[in-house]
Write a protein that binds this DNA or RNA. Structure first.
Lengths: 319, 319
DNA sequence: CGGTATCAAGATACCGATAACATTTCGTTT
DNA sequence: AAACGAAATGTTATCGGTATCTTGATACCG
């Protein structure tokens, strides 16, 4: 920058102002300096600026990344979140620092201006750890009612309720819920489901399954059958589980949707091509990412931000 | 750090050395300072260090992120790459700066110590742009033989060849390739496929399909049928296409694998649960990510690094 | 016991930007 | 013509670390 200043015959600070489009410099001077900067391919030193401004214009995104058949960052959907986040932060001139929980101890994270936490397991365990960094922080997940921090998530209670109402409208009396309610988000879905069914005096059966795979869904239905439990509706908290459940149901000689109604969750593209095309609850991940980004940015600017739920919608196809 | 120095009764530089575990300080002193740092929850200022050292310990990962049914960053597999990259860089004390091509003009990227480019479209178009940053750079994708930069990718030629040999071993004579060869990676698969078949004087039919969806795969087979083209083997360059092709084949009353052999690509988990269980070519994405990371790190350290292909393996199931 | 090697720690300068305060320049007012 | 004020630019200090060069203290040597 000093060199540029010499070339332009002005002082460093004038160059700094010119490049920052400050109104303090003469428009002519500014143009001249801009031209010079382009010509000499001058690049601002971000580290120096960060040091001086005490801001990094960076938001750290911390994801869960354990390798398992459980839901992980490798599901495509949480990645849509990242897409939304990235889009919004980039537009605001911020960068995304991607980290795993393990890597988050790496110094760079504390240099961030804000934090976004993704991944369901995070909630109780890790949030406190990151709380100590005293950075603006936003968490993706389920609302617990009395959150100490800003939570953005899709409205899982509503998701459960919508499916319940769908079942009620179809006159179903013996619904089953398949999934792992120890995930806070899924616990909420179950709650919404149970409460909305209770209005009609219906009590669903909970089939706990920890793996979110097609095989696990098949297994759930087979074990229902083995235990001679009757059912006429299945709410699977993931599309793969739902597809497995459907396949097993068909295997058992029962019809979908005539005998059994099945609804999945996430509305993955594949579901629409499944035979029969899968009904599912859709959440708008990308919008969620955008919202997460906006909230951190607000917090960083010192503005208030509150937790928020995103609507979900039931896509009824042929199951 | 000055405060810590005062507390410890030493000078700043000694604190700096102690925290950096430099052998220049007395072990006792070092311990004392470390203890003090922990006690007061002292955090090094990364920006200051970056400025002084002229390094950011950051690698920018630039991904393709256009929303389409084409292959995008939202496929789960390219994301496994990210996982591998992140794992390896974190272990080496580096951070991952995630950017889209659009956002890559954001200043932060040029502050990175190195660059990793993901996304097939990148090749010809954007590489040059990033070349100008004069940063150590590694690209994921297909090898073109005379690459100006380091390329890591799985061995797509081999992938194609392996499938071809499989078909030959089964006595297939009229194979079809489904996919979009304008992606360099897929072009290589096609090349490997064609060349290995040519050994037996077999010429495959190319069914060009731009979308990598199940419907697109069905459509491909239906249009083969409509055009009364005979075929006894299908190599789809993606598992969704393969599943669609299988479904359409079955719809047409032909048997898989008795009448038609089908092989997909990527070996997605769902494929194993498909009916019939899908045969597919598996590439080790995570390993690829690790390799990408190692190569940039090497380049950053000033060591040489060369392009490299990762092996792939054919998983034969029931198609 | 003087001279040198070794270890520990300090002094100073510097990385490259920007904020705060100071100064010059010029047009305008009275 | 002196005084004033706004616009444009400059001076200085500073953000928080680390490299380099020195200095001081202790140990070891013949």
């Amino acid at each position: 920058m000093a060199d540029l200043a010499q070339l332009a015959g002005v002082s460093k600070i004038t160059v700094s102002r010119a490049l920052g489009d400050s109104p303090l410099v003469n428009p002519e001077t500014r143009e001249r300096i801009h031209a010079l900067a382009r010509e000499h391919d001058y690049k601002l030193n971000i580290s120096a600026r960060n040091l001086r401004l005490r801001r990094s214009h960076t938001v750290a995104v911390i994801v869960e990344m354990k390798p398992s058949t459980d839901r992980t960052m490798f599901d495509p959907y949480p990645l849509l979140l990242l897409g939304g986040i990235s889009q919004e932060l980039t537009a605001a001139g911020y960068s995304v620092l991607l980290t795993t929980r393990q890597g988050a101890s790496a110094a760079a994270v504390q240099a961030a201006d804000g934090l976004i936490l993704l991944g369901q397991g995070v909630h109780q365990d890790a949030v406190r750890r990151f709380d100590k960094l005293r950075l603006p922080m936003v968490v993706w997940g389920a609302h617990t009612g009395n959150d100490a921090h800003v939570v953005v998530g899709s409205d899982n209670r509503l998701g459960g309720a919508v499916v319940a109402r769908h079942f009620i409208a179809l006159g179903r009396r013996r619904p089953v819920f398949i999934g792992n309610p120890s995930h806070p988000e899924i616990f909420e879905r179950l709650n919404g489901f149970v409460d909305a069914l209770a209005v009609r005096g219906i009590k669903p059966l909970l089939m706990r399954r920890d793996e979110f795979t097609l095989d696990s869904g098949m297994d759930a239905v087979h074990s229902l059958h083995a235990r001679k439990v009757g059912f006429d509706a299945i709410f699977a908290c993931n599309d793969l589980l739902a597809m497995g459940a459907i396949r097993a149901t068909l295997d058992l000689g029962r019809s979908v949707p005539a005998d059994v109604t099945v609804v999945g969750y996430d509305d993955m593209p594949l579901g629409a091509s499944f035979l029969p095309p899968l009904s599912s609850v859709r959440q708008d991940w990308q919008e969620g990412g955008i919202l997460l980004a906006r909230k951190v940015l607000a917090l960083i600017e010192g503005e208030p931000a509150s937790s928020e739920s995103l609507p979900v919608s039931l896509i009824v196809r042929s199951t």
